[in-house]
Every structure is written in C-alpha cells, then in structure tokens.
Amino acid sequence: MSPRPHLIALAAIVVLGLLYAFGSKDAVTLDLVFTLFLYATLGQSWNWISGYAGNISFGHAIFFGCGAYAAALCTNAGLSPWLAVPAGALVAAALALVTGFPTLALRGHYFSIATIAVGALVDTYVRTQGWLGMANGFELPIKNGLGWLQFSDKGPYVALALGLFALVQLATLALERSRLGYYLRALRANHAAAASVGIDERRWKLIAFTSCATFAALAGVLYAQYTLFVDPPSTLALSISIDIALIGVVGGIGTLWGPLVGASVYVLLAKEVALRLGGSGKGYDLVIYGAIICLIAAWRPHGIVGSIIDALRRRRGAADVVSVQNPAEAA
C-alpha cells in the first residue's frame, strides 16, 4: 500500500494542529491537545517494541523519565534543556540495551517481567539518590524562550508536541516499509520460521527497543519543560507505564494510527469521566475507566484501529491480505 494517504493525513493533522496551536487562546483545550500528542508519541514508542515486535513492555515510563529527569537536571543546573535531548535519549537507549539484551530473545512473558522489574529498580534507585531529588523530585525554575524550551503561551508547546508526534509517526511509517519492520513482524508472527531464514531476533529487536526508548525520552524532556515538575510518581511509576500500554492496546496494537486514537480516547475519557463523576468523592471515575478498558479488551481485542481495519477487509472480502501486513491479526 502506498504511504501517500498516511502522509496526507499526517500533513492535515500537522497543519490543523499548528493553526489551532497559534490561533486559539483557550488554555484548557490547548492543554488537552498537548497531552494528547504527548501520549500519542509515548503510545507509538511503546507500539514499536510491543506492537510491531510483539514484546509487551510494562516499563516504558522509565524512558520517559530519563528525558524528564535529564531536562530537570539540566535546567536546574542552568544549562539549556536542549542538552537533555541527547543526554536523556542516550541514557534511555542505554537502559533499553541493558534491559533488552538478556530478555528480548526469550520466549513468553520474560521480557514483560523484566521491564516491570527494571522499572521498579529505576524508581527505587531514583528515590534513594540525593542528586536525583529522592522522593521529592525537582521543580524546574521558570524561564522563557525557545532556548529554555519554556513559553508563557501554550501554542509553542502544542507545536513542539505535534512536531515530535509527526517525527515519530514518519519514523513509524518508514519502519512499516523497512527491512526492520518486516523482520519484526515476521519474528512476531513466527519467530522459529523467521530465525530459520536467518533473522537475528536479538539484534533487530534491540534496534527497535533502543530507538523507541529515545522517542519516549524526547517526550519526557518536553513534559518536564511543560509541567515544570518531575518526581517519581509522575514520571517513573508503573502506573504511567500501564497508561502508555493501555493507549497502545485500546487504539490498536501494531497499527500506525492506533496510538493517536488510543491517546484521544484516553485523554478525552479521563477528562470527561472526571468532569461528570468527579467530586462525588468515591472514586467512581477510576472504576468506570477500568470497566471501559475491560470492555474494549474483551470485545475489541485488536483495538479501535485494528477493528476498523478488520471491518474494511471484511467488506472487501479480501482474504488475500497476508497477516504480516495486518499485525493486529497476530497480536
């Protein structure tokens, strides 16, 4: 399939997003849009290793945290957070290498377990290190300007989040059509068959894992400069990792647009449920949110985008689509 429709859709999103970012003065909606693209980026990052490669990660928050902490350390030291972009990405890639090397070639759920363990380790480590702010975390000093990646308006933040999302989306589009992408999906569909034709599972999956870890770190830098506060529960906790995974699953695992759709559902649902049921003081919002996730998991295990692709195919009656091209099939 030609990438053109995807490119057109992405261009349309970018143009509309930019118009909105600089045209609107509505801080609340701009905040939602920023969060949406940030989570979509994180979801897509997760999608690389868990969707395309099929190794479910429950530790993605630590890569996000690498970027956020790098930004906090840089800004507090009086250095530009732009330095945190390579620094955070490098640390995240190194962590991904260390986690992935012994576990990515293992069968079953060992990789998932390892990501949970490494996530807990990093969380605990940060909580005990004075130079990482221990449990208190960091506040970032208020600055202004592109050099500090801080702005008094929301528009530039939204534009940056949109730009980051677009970059990751382009990378994913390239992945889908690259040797790496085909290898990953082949490995996921049948690793023994893939290995028998000479695909080195560990090598290719490590490439995917380290790449996507750097995307998450970039999102972390942006998050830190936006929120101006970084601590373990808001950047490293298992709950953040699970949120990221849910976005990938709800939207459609292993699909190009799944993470954006998943993030939209996540952000709007969280806002809407909190708005309508908040303040009752009974935590109904969490219960309802959990129930919706369960329903999607039970009825639409391919996620929203996966289900749409299924429906389209059924209409065409096209049984000729190879399952490798529709990764949701094998998920």
């Binding site: 509505d26 801080a27 609340v28 905040d31 969060t35 929120t227 969280a270 909190a274 908040g278």
Partner: peptide, 22 residues
C-alpha cells in the same frame, strides 16, 4: 470555583490554568 487535580501534578497545572484563564 473548583477544578480537579486528580491528585496528579500535570492535571493540577491544567486545573490552575483553567481557573485563571476561563
């Protein structure tokens, strides 16, 4: 006028912004 932080730093930020601007 009340705005919900959900107990999260990023939501608290958004809530404060909403109260001030809207």
């Amino acid at each position: 006028v009340f705005a919900d932080s959900q107990g999260k730093p990023d939501q608290a930020r958004a809530a404060a912004e909403e109260l001030i601007t809207q």
